[in-house]
């Protein structure tokens, strides 16, 4: 069982959260202007790192706000929780 530290509500069990996948991806501002490959890449190709990766989580059964988590996908250790809009942390923390 994971315990995540919601930036607004504090530590809560994983069941209160929704997983949002890869963090720091941007929807192409003009979808009509990008190639099928670029659009497909945005829609379907996401990081699947074995190790540390940045992910989006939503406290859906709490404050319903989104935030980012840097988590190790092997040990499941959470290295850092940070707010949307903050830069990707260096993974030395």
């Amino acid at each position: 069982m994971l315990q995540l530290e919601c930036p607004w509500c504090g530590p809560r069990d994983e069941e209160e959260f929704t997983y949002g996948g890869e963090a720091h991806i941007t929807r192409p501002p003009e979808p009509d202007a990008v190639s099928d490959a670029a659009w497909g890449d945005y829609l379907f190709f996401h990081t699947n790192t074995r190790g540390l990766q940045s992910e989006q989580w939503c406290h859906s059964h709490g404050c319903r706000r989104w935030f980012n988590v840097a988590r190790d996908t092997v040990t499941y250790r959470i290295h850092r929780v940070y707010r949307m809009g903050e830069p990707r942390p260096g993974f030395d923390a």
Partner: peptide, 13 residues
């Protein structure tokens, strides 16, 4: 499990 993981164990919920 809803979240990505490579640990060969699952979540209790």
């Amino acid at each position: 499990d809803a979240y990505q993981g490579y640990g060969q164990r699952g979540s209790f919920p």
